[in-house]
Nucleic acid binder design. Sequence first.
DNA 1: ATCGGTACCTGCACGC
DNA 2: TGCGTGCAGGTACCGA
Length: 264
Amino acid sequence: MPELPEVETIARALAPRLRGRRIVSAEFRCLRVLIGDPDRTSAALAGRRVLAVQRHGKFIEIQLDAGQSFVVHLGMTGKLLMNGAPGKHTHAVLTLDRGALLYDDSRQFGRLELSAGLPARVRKLGPEPLEVAFEDFESRVRAHKTKIKALLLNQRFLRGIGNIYADEALYRAGIHPLAVARRLHRDRLKKLHAAIRKVLGEAIDAGGSSVSDYVDVDGRQGSFQVRHNVYQKNGAPCPRCGARIRRILVTQRGTHFCPQCQKR
DNA sequence: ATCGGTACCTGCACGC
DNA sequence: TGCGTGCAGGTACCGA
């Protein structure tokens, strides 16, 4: 489900409401989404205090005292809800000294993990796309020989970009999703670097994109979906040139682009 | 070592 | 109404 802007929106809303709270108890109802033993995890969480909430790519780190971190990845349909009503797909309930945090995930692709510091799968992520300098961005692109769309989805290249923002950034940069990454000229990579920053920044300002079921911690939708130019707009006219937006598959992911504006 | 295909799960929209 | 198909903001794992 959520990409960097959605996860950032969630982390920003969560931080002031979790910071300083104490976890009274933790209950796990679905073993698939929990990495680790449920009883040991519950026991270790009980009594911990929340120090901070941070985003790392698409991961949310709830930093606890005693050097522990409760790390959440929302997968496709994961939701973190403050004081929501538990439902059919509520897989975890953290009861706090004030209120409760629920983890809801119909497809069960998300993962929850209590770890000492950050787990390896977070540590091996590439840099934040909003922080990476152009020189670093360019040398990372040159290190791969795959198609640019596939590279943007690779979390070891950059952390946090997913299917929506990959398509939207490539559209804004005028780059065809099947272009071979390392063969792109410097000026086109500069456009892409800027487009990524711009689209992610605008999406964060809009509270993310609610395409089907994304909501923030209070159950509110984002609004960036109304500004998508290509994502899930196949057959619609390109806002720039009027040509029909096309949908193709790139490494099994639906990929949307303007065949006129985006060249290899 | 890197790449691409597949598996994992549920729900929804669609055509018949 | 019901069934089959295809599709969906994700990553992990496997073999080439």
